[in-house]
Every structure is written in structure tokens, then in C-alpha cells.
Computed example of a mutant assay.
Amino acid sequence: MLLLLVVLAGIAGTLGYFYKLSKNAIDTITTDANPATVIPKAKSVAVKPVSIMLLGLDTRKETGSLNTDVMMIAAFNPKTKKATVISIPRDSKIELSGYNSRKANAYYANFLREAEDKTSDKAEADRTAKQGLRKMFGEFFGIPIDYTATINFQGFADVVDALHGVDVNVDMDMNYNDHAGQPDGTSIHLKKGFQHLDGEEALGFVRYRKSNDGKNMSSDFDRNRRQSEVLGEIADKLKSLSGVTKIPGVIKAVGNNMKMDIPSGEVQKMITTYFGISRSDITFIPLEGTWRSPYVYLDADKLEQAKAALRQQLAD
């Protein structure tokens, strides 16, 4: 998700002083790509459509979890300057030949465990796990997935704070404190209605599942819709005059909380290629389905529509 925010921040790419600050901030992003990697011009993101798997990982020490709380597939087309973003419900049951059936958010941890059994190099194991994840979900969606970007929750909150908050319509009262088992520090207290949220409040808004009293239940589909709403609001804020001045801080917030396997030179090209992209240029498609504990069973027709949308965006 935060790599998408970096691209949305691309309007700074041609603005002199802000470009210099943004480039310095881009250099803080952690990349697993070989620094000597040179992408041929014909295959660069500046001229060729690109697909990226975006993973939101809860890396807080209180949880010890490796499950991916947010999963998106984003496709960008440099000719149309448009993007398609598919949100995958975390509890989706994935059934694919050659792979054990699991919840969508459990595959990264499983691939990582398998890789760690074969090597003591943690960085190598992580790269192998992400390669396996890209391959599997690429087969599932019927497209090649070029890169992976992994981000943590703090990065999302920091980006919103760098923009001095976002204005969204909170769809229900939300009251939740984590105090069972090993607390993860989650505290969500929001009132229903249109309001201004800071970073921690926006994070709570997109993550909310239910209140402590069991009321106001929230589904995977609700969370995916909220993610799209906040990303759209961020995109529009970045296009505003006041948003432009905050670009370096936004990219720095991303860089401090992201790992990716995209060569740094390609990140810079991506930003300059897609500068000025706004909410109207991004098609958000949250996958839908039916909840039957413990899985979300994806709607076959909606899934095919999402696959078609990705293929169309990636067409040269």
C-alpha cells in the first residue's frame, strides 16, 4: 500500500527543490534488489506496464505475527497513466493446483518458514518467500507479478500524519481495546460520521473488526473498502497545493517503513512517470465473497472481473 503512496506522491518529481528533497527521501527506502541491477530501457517501468504485490505486515513485537493483514495487487500502465488496485480479503480461501489451500494472509509466513529451513541467511529466506508468493498469486490471477513491497502499520500512520491527517466518513461507532492474551497495543475509538483522522486513528479505521462488546462487526470487505477510501483521500491531498509541500515527508515516512525488491532507479522512474495521478486515475477493486467461518469464499464472477481488469491494465 505504501509503495502506491510513493507513486501518488510523484507530483514532486518535477518540482525542482521538492524533487531534490524527494530523491533524498527515496534513497532511504530499503530495497533487496542488487544495487548493480540495470533494467533495459524496453523493460523499464517508464515504458512497460508493471505489477506489484503490496503487503501490509504487522511487525510489532507484541504480536510476533507474520500474517499479512493487507494484501493488494497493483497494476500500472505508463501509456494511460492509470492504475488498477485489487484488494484481497485476508481470510480468502485460496485454492490453486500445486499449493496447499490456506487463507490468503497465511502464505507469506509459510513460504518464509520453508525458506528458513533451507538457509540461515534471513535476507535470502525473505527474498525466496516473496518470490514464491509472487509466483503463486501470479498464477492465481493469471498475470506476471514483477515486484513485491512489504510495509508495516507504523508506515501507514506516519504517512497520514505527514499529510496532517485525512477526512473520511466513519461508517460506524468503533470501540476496541486489545486486552486479551498478549496485548498488541491496539486502541480504536471513533464515532460514526464524517471527520478528520490522524495517523493512528486512520490506521484503526482501516483495521477495525469489532467492538469489545461484540457489537458493530466489520468484515474483510468493509476493511478493504475503507483502505480504498483512505488511499483515495491521500491521492487527492497530494495533488493539492498544500499537499505538495509535504511530499518529502510522505516519502520519508514510506522509506522508513518499507522493504521492496524494486531497483531504486526504477522507483525514481516510476514516480516521474506517474506524477499527478489522482483518485480518478485509480480503479479500486475490492474482491468480494461469502464468509463461512473460517474462510471468505470469493465470488467467482467478481474474481474473473478483477483478473480481466489487471490484464487490461498490463496490456502494452
Rank of each mutant, 00 (worst) to 15 (best):
M1Y: 10
L4E: 12
L8T: 05
G13N: 03
G16L: 09
G16H: 08
Y17P: 01
F18Y: 15
Y19A: 15
I26W: 00
D27K: 13
D27E: 15
D32S: 11
D32A: 11
N34A: 09
N34K: 11
A36N: 14
V38T: 15
I39P: 03
A42E: 14
S44C: 09
S44V: 14
V47P: 01
V47E: 09
K48L: 01
V50Y: 09
G56R: 06
L57A: 12
D58A: 05
D58R: 02
D69S: 13
A75V: 00
P78E: 05
T80V: 09
K82Y: 09
V85S: 03
R90H: 09
L96D: 02
Y99H: 10
N100P: 06
N100D: 13
A104Y: 06
N105M: 12
A106T: 02
Y108W: 13
A109K: 08
A109D: 12
N110G: 03
R113V: 11
R113G: 13
D117P: 00
K118S: 10
A125V: 07
R127S: 14
T128C: 03
F137R: 00
F141W: 05
P144I: 07
D146P: 01
D146C: 03
D146L: 07
T148H: 10
T148R: 03
I151W: 00
F156Y: 06
A157R: 04
V160C: 01
L163N: 00
G165K: 05
V166R: 02
V166N: 04
V168L: 04
N169Y: 11
V170P: 07
V170W: 03
D171I: 10
M172E: 11
H179F: 14
A180W: 09
Q182I: 15
L190F: 08
K191G: 09
K191T: 15
K192P: 08
Q195G: 10
Q195M: 12
L197C: 05
L197K: 05
D198A: 06
G199T: 07
G199K: 04
E200Q: 14
L203D: 06
R207P: 03
D213C: 04
K215E: 15
R225P: 01
R226G: 01
E229M: 09
A235S: 13
D236A: 04
S240L: 08
L241I: 14
S242F: 13
T245A: 14
P248V: 02
I251R: 01
V254I: 02
G255H: 03
M258S: 11
M258T: 13
K259A: 12
M260Q: 13
D261W: 00
P263H: 11
S264L: 08
E266G: 05
E266S: 08
E266H: 05
V267I: 15
V267S: 06
I271A: 15
T273V: 03
Y274N: 01
F275A: 13
I277M: 15
S280I: 12
I282W: 04
T283M: 14
F284E: 08
P286H: 02
P286L: 00
P286D: 05
T290A: 08
R292V: 15
S293G: 00
S293C: 02
Y297F: 14
Y297V: 10
L298K: 06
L298N: 04
D301S: 10
K302R: 11
E304Q: 07
A306R: 07
R311Q: 13
A315M: 07
A315C: 04
D316K: 11
